[in-house]
Simulated scan of single mutants.
Amino acid sequence: MKQLVLDLGAAEPAQSLDTFQIGANAEMAHLMHQFAQRASREHFCYLWGETGAGKTHILQGLAATRGSRYIPADADPDAFVHAPGVTLYLVDDIDQLTPERQIDAFALYNQVREHGTYMVCAGPLPPAVLPVREDLRTRMGWGLVYQIHDLSDDEKIAALTQAAEARGLTLSASVLPYLLSHFKRDMRSLSTMLDALDHYSLETQRPVTLPLLRDLLHQGNQHTESKE
């Protein structure tokens, strides 16, 4: 349990479109299911939003579909080459591409158009202000563009409560509001903490109450300080 407590977020669970918390993103989520089925009239989409909004979650969920290729910012040049059998290309953190990979991404976009395949890219900013070369920035705005809106606090609490119930985990009423005020606020980090609370509760044979959460957060803070 020590390792889990001290390395919160180190283990990334498999992502899927079905586990994405939709919130105010219903239209975008519907479109992504169309992309998963290669049924969208539009063949290109650019997603943008703050860190933790769920951009990588969506791209990795799409990557689980057959004929898809997930391309992180640090991918090899070969990843940007259009290939037989790949019908959906997913370029993450496009703002972090090197100048060379930006050229590759621009070329891949053109190949996707030529072959009639699909492409979804993601970044933190709308296309007009992306810090990339002009031709690539222009291409990001040619297709559909969606901002991914973060969940409200009430939506996050509802989603985490549902996830806890699915685990058979009972939370005291003060746990989740306190967690939102004293921990990272993106759903990936919050879900990871929920897993840690579940394991820590089992290890210590204590219910998931505010004192248990404080103990867990304290251990994490101590570990962070020891590494600095």
Rank of each mutant, 00 (worst) to 15 (best):
R139K: 11
P127V: 07
R139A: 10
G116T: 09
C121K: 00
P127E: 02
W142A: 11
Y109V: 09
A128C: 09
V132F: 00
V132I: 15
D135L: 09
L108S: 01
D104C: 13
Y109E: 06
L130N: 02
L130G: 03
P126W: 13
R133W: 01
Q111P: 00
P126Y: 14
V132W: 00
V120F: 02
Y109C: 06
Y109H: 15
P127S: 04
L108G: 03
V112Y: 03
T117Y: 08
V132S: 00
H115V: 03
Y118D: 05
A122W: 00
A122Y: 02
V129S: 12
Q111M: 15
W142G: 12
L108K: 07
L136Y: 02
V112H: 04
R137F: 06
E114M: 13
D135Y: 08
V120T: 03
W142R: 12
A107W: 12
A105Q: 06
V129G: 02
M140S: 03
L136M: 04
P126D: 07
L136H: 03
Y118S: 00
V112R: 05
R113L: 15
A128K: 14
T117K: 03
A105G: 07
Y109I: 07
G123H: 01
D104K: 08
M140F: 11
N110C: 11
A107R: 14
Y109Q: 06
